[in-house]
Design a protein around this nucleic acid. Sequence first.
DNA 1: TCCTTATATCGTATATTTACGATATACAAT
DNA 2: ATTGTATATCGTAAATATACGATATAAGGA
Lengths: 105, 105
Amino acid sequence: MAYSKKEEFPDQDLRLAEIAKALSHPARIKILRILNQMNSCMVGGLVEQLPISQSTVSQHLTELRKAGLIIGEIDGPKVCYCINKEQLTKTKKAFDRLFSGIGCC
Amino acid sequence: MAYSKKEEFPDQDLRLAEIAKALSHPARIKILRILNQMNSCMVGGLVEQLPISQSTVSQHLTELRKAGLIIGEIDGPKVCYCINKEQLTKTKKAFDRLFSGIGCC
DNA sequence: TCCTTATATCGTATATTTACGATATACAAT
DNA sequence: ATTGTATATCGTAAATATACGATATAAGGA
């Protein structure tokens, strides 16, 4: 088949869908919760608290980073991840706009 | 590989991830917007306003229905879809809880 | 320099999603 | 009864996501 019609939808809807996709796996939601709870965390600390392998955790972190929801700072041989609060605030507002734009009280 | 670790995550995170997944395609977000704008709409009306085929629209509607975000009422040979405002309100609250539980202001 | 540690990336297998056309179903109207 | 209309479902192909182990990379310490 000819593929991915996603680009044919309004930009606003596409961007919101992308953020929703970043939130569409329980591991990624859990990661956000852990990062908030601990303020920041090394990858190893996350791996310890998740039932998935290091390489899979790394993949999920990459997706959260691409969506702008987290930031990773290199700290020697380690990488320290934390939540991107600014982007998260924007995301919350985008969802709020969607819900109110959809007649949600 | 052995598959889907999703069940190994907290129920709350899993349910929120499922709703996020329902919102993770621009066609489904557009459908919600159209349904709100028109109050309710037959499938044919949606197909006219979307750049995808009837069968694909039907698949997206099934996913939104499974997530509880829309309701379809049979009306003769047609089906009339509308937003499930009750569920949408719950969804909004679930996202709000996530965001505040994540340190979002 | 060599070893250890931490993380990312590669290669790969399987599952799921997205998309379409074709077909089935369900009802209304003739 | 037959025809037409609306929608869902089936079959299928391609794309993407999920998961892992193995390997590469990068930095610190011996």
